[in-house]
Amino acid sequence: MSGGIIILMSIALAGASYGIGVLPLSVTFSKSTLGALTALGTGLLLGAGLGIIIPEGVETLASAYAGSDFPTSTISIALLLGFTFMLGVEQFTSSHSHSPLITPSITLEMNHSKELPSLPDVEFDAELDDLEDQATHSSRHSIEAQSDIQKVAVPLTLGLFIHGLADGLALGVSSLSDSSSGGLSDLSLVVFLALLIHKAPTTLAFTMSLLSTSLSRSQCKRHLALFSASTPIGAISSYFLLSIFGAGGGGKLTGFALLVSGGSFLYVATVLQPVSDHSHPTSSGGLGRKARALVVIIGVFIPFAIAFTFDHAHHVHLESPNIISSH
């Protein structure tokens, strides 16, 4: 049953990502709208990682190691692997490293010569300010340079595709951790919603970035479709691969995988989408620092609130037959 649920969630996530991504083809988004979505996505990832995924992973590992020493080292190495894996993905799919203090963006940088442009500087969560600067910058170049930029759209999409696969790990493992119940768990629901909102500004910015190049709209849609499929592919693949290795319904492997995905969430929420950005007062996509901080804080507590409500309703449902029978 859980296998069917992860497939349905993956299809919904792919459809939503693509649907949101094609909106810039006909709709113009304001800085404040994109900035608010980015801030909310940051809070959701942080809240899902710290408040849901990591505690669930620790609890799962602790139960698996019952009767022996608490698995402190295992917890540590899992979190570190998740964090450093995303660090490696972000750095090695970029043409050069960037300062963590810069607001994350998707940028396509072009040389002023007639040579082929350098590989795109792939950062995974976009801000509208950077996209507008990019469009202005690219418009100053020759028609030949605009044609050459098509050749660097592939590495850009590839980097984002790998990033999406890593996001899918969290969804796949969260569904696997409660596979014994055969239903939708609060963990998988929270992770699904967090990824859905997190991907909205990234997908919008990705499409707007492609549109600022010489790519046609049909080509932009093909790149968008590939990026939209990345997280579902990662989710379904991780779910069934871990199932083959016997990770269903809890256990050491499930707990370890949960912590790895939790570590990757922390990297995305704190490095790729910085909680604080001190570069300039309006660097948050048209939001002030205080407004952005408020939106992030709200997002942080939404996963916990969803999990608490879902868990409370589940317990009430389980207890209701006993209450009826007692009368």
Rank of each mutant, 00 (worst) to 15 (best):
M208K: 12
S209H: 02
S209Q: 09
L211A: 12
L211C: 02
S212K: 09
T213Q: 07
T213D: 10
S214T: 09
L215T: 08
S216K: 10
S216H: 05
S218C: 00
C220P: 01
R222P: 00
H223F: 15
L224M: 11
A225W: 03
A225T: 06
L226T: 11
L226M: 13
L226K: 07
S228W: 01
S230K: 02
G234R: 03
G234H: 03
G234P: 00
I236W: 03
S237C: 03
S237P: 00
L241S: 10
L241K: 02
L242G: 01
L242I: 03
S243L: 12
S243N: 11
I244L: 13
F245G: 00
F245W: 08
G246W: 05
G246S: 06
A247W: 01
G248N: 08
L253T: 08
L253D: 01
T254Q: 08
A257M: 13
L258Q: 09
V260Y: 02
V260M: 10
G262Y: 04
G262M: 06
G262F: 01
G263H: 06
G263R: 09
S264V: 00
F265V: 01
L266T: 02
Y267P: 01
V268Y: 05
V268T: 08
V268F: 04
T270V: 11
V271C: 06
V271L: 11
Q273P: 00
Q273M: 15
P274D: 14
P274W: 13
S276Y: 15
D277V: 14
D277L: 14
H278G: 05
H278N: 15
H278T: 13
H280K: 08
H280F: 15
P281K: 12
T282G: 06
S283G: 15
G285I: 11
G285A: 13
G285R: 09
G286V: 07
G286R: 09
G288P: 08
G288F: 07
G288S: 15
R289M: 11
A291I: 08
A291H: 07
R292N: 14
R292W: 04
R292V: 03
L294F: 14
L294R: 10
V295I: 15
V295C: 05
V296S: 05
V296H: 04
I297H: 04
I297M: 11
I297P: 04
I298A: 12
V300M: 14
V300G: 07
F301L: 13
F301P: 07
I302Q: 05
I302L: 12
I302Y: 01
I302K: 04
P303T: 12
I306Y: 05
A307L: 01
A307G: 08
